[in-house]
Nucleic acid binder design. Sequence first.
DNA 1: AGATGTGAAGCGGTTCACAGCT
DNA 2: AGCTGTGAACCGCTTCACATCT
Lengths: 220, 220
Amino acid sequence: MARLPVYLRALTTLSETGTTVCSSEDLAAAAGVNSAKLRKDLSYLGSYGTRGVGYDVEYLRYQIAREMGATRDWPVVIVGIGKMGATRDWPVVIVGIGNLGHALANYSGFRSRGFRVVALLDADGQRHGEVVAGVVVRPFSDLGAIVREHGVAIGVIATPAASAQDVADQMVEAGISSILNFAPTVLNVGDDIAVSKVDLSKELQVLAYHEQRKATQETA
Amino acid sequence: MARLPVYLRALTTLSETGTTVCSSEDLAAAAGVNSAKLRKDLSYLGSYGTRGVGYDVEYLRYQIAREMGATRDWPVVIVGIGKMGATRDWPVVIVGIGNLGHALANYSGFRSRGFRVVALLDADGQRHGEVVAGVVVRPFSDLGAIVREHGVAIGVIATPAASAQDVADQMVEAGISSILNFAPTVLNVGDDIAVSKVDLSKELQVLAYHEQRKATQETA
DNA sequence: AGATGTGAAGCGGTTCACAGCT
DNA sequence: AGCTGTGAACCGCTTCACATCT
């Protein structure tokens, strides 16, 4: 279930504030859902609560983490260190500016949750050899070797939309079976491949849409 | 509707490849949904298709763009539409210039869709004066003044979880009514405030979860 | 013929409400 | 008494299927 990570984080927060036991009500509030939904979700994992009392924070946290596979360490490959967000490939414009792949490589939230960036790849030869977050940027063609070497199962695509499908195909070819896609494109992959999509500007556009609605309603 | 940005982008892609007319089937494939859903969605905007033929790409694109944020600034609408589908200009503030805030400030996908980053704010005095993506980093306390000056309606939170609620409160106080939250926390705000949440490591964790499932199923 | 637009059926997730346990 | 675990009602979105129009 897609809410497990949220519950896990909420439990961690509770744990840090010294809470040892919590009701479904408490945890639901911390996770931003309602208590019935939380209880139903947890019931799919098993009966880890105590009636009349609540859930033991550490115990439940362990159970969710186990269910999620967070007890092991997942090697990750990030492709596309430059040019993120350009609809087409404009190397001249983008070179020398920070970017999403760069940020992802540095993003401490990944490391702290058990994800280890084992390689940074880019098609742009200019960036090869550059060291980002302690990892050397290598050619995209090294993908297969790296996947084999580290047993990589998860790939992150932070390239322009135009290259995303090609990158995805080669990831699958190399043996990667889960893809996190930041490019604003629908990826065509077999349904044995899990794909998560994050579209940053889409989120902003949705907000702009709400703003627009508010503005037109006020004048009505 | 949250899918409008996706349709808009799909239409832009089709337009760039020289397509002038498309069926609901075509557009649905490009947007990654099925045709019935697409037609139902579009029917809420009006009857912009032609039976037996399909949708005129440019015309539909204009209609969706208008729906998404452009009843003001008529002249701008027409000019802007030909290029990107952004029909007006949304000033945006980004708070928190860590790795992620840095990347967002540089993200070209925002600019190209009509969002203009008017200010970068950070609580860390070390960073004040630093120039990122052509914008100077300023103290968080400048928020109110900047919102008034530029008429900012949209704020982006790229701070650690611990500060996010406080930042959100002050954004609302300053008059911002739409928030894009990258911090892994549930924000408590009035329901007249629109909040979108993006949790990068959550997405990875969901993928790891799928990997875990696959692994355990194979051994079963 | 061929594709849109749309009532109606279907479905999955959410919420209710309470039985059952501590 | 209090809180979990869960069948059952509910609700909104999705999908079907077809009337309708060009």
